[in-house]
Computed example of a mutant assay.
Amino acid sequence: MTDPFPEDLQRRYRPRLEADATALRAQSGETSDTRRPVELDQQSVGRLSRMDAMQQQAMAAALEARRGARRRAITAALLRMEAGEFGFCEDCGDFIGFGRLDLDPTLVRCVDCAG
Rank of each mutant, 00 (worst) to 15 (best):
R80N: 12
A58H: 00
A62M: 10
A62V: 06
R109M: 12
P4K: 05
L78I: 11
R72W: 08
T22S: 12
R36G: 04
A62W: 00
M59Q: 10
T34K: 10
D8F: 02
M81L: 03
D102F: 04
A114D: 07
L107V: 15
A53F: 01
G46A: 05
I74N: 03
Q42C: 07
V38R: 05
P6H: 05
M1P: 01
C92E: 10
E82I: 02
R16V: 10
Q27I: 01
D3S: 05
G46L: 00
Q42E: 15
L79S: 12
A21L: 07
A60W: 04
A83R: 13
A73T: 01
D112K: 09
A53D: 10
M1H: 07
D52H: 10
L79A: 14
L79N: 11
R11C: 14
E85N: 07
T106S: 09
R25Q: 00
R14S: 08
A65W: 04
L103T: 11
P6E: 03
R80Q: 11
L107A: 15
Q10T: 14
L9Q: 11
F98R: 08
T75Q: 14
Q55I: 06
R71L: 12
R25E: 02
P37E: 04
D33I: 04
A21G: 14
P4D: 01
A77E: 05
P15R: 14
G29A: 00
G46P: 01
Q43W: 06
C113S: 07
R67Y: 02
L48Y: 14
L17N: 11
R11L: 12
L24M: 05
E90L: 05
D3V: 01
R72F: 05
A19K: 12
D8H: 04
R14I: 07
Q57Y: 04
I96C: 02
L101F: 02
A114Y: 03
V45I: 08
R67A: 13
A65L: 08
D8M: 09
A19Y: 02
D91A: 12
T106C: 06
D41E: 03
T34D: 11
R100Q: 13
S32E: 02
A61Y: 01
L17F: 04
S49L: 07
V111H: 08
L101Q: 09
R14P: 07
F98A: 09
D3P: 03
S32K: 01
C110L: 07
G87W: 07
F98G: 06
T2D: 00
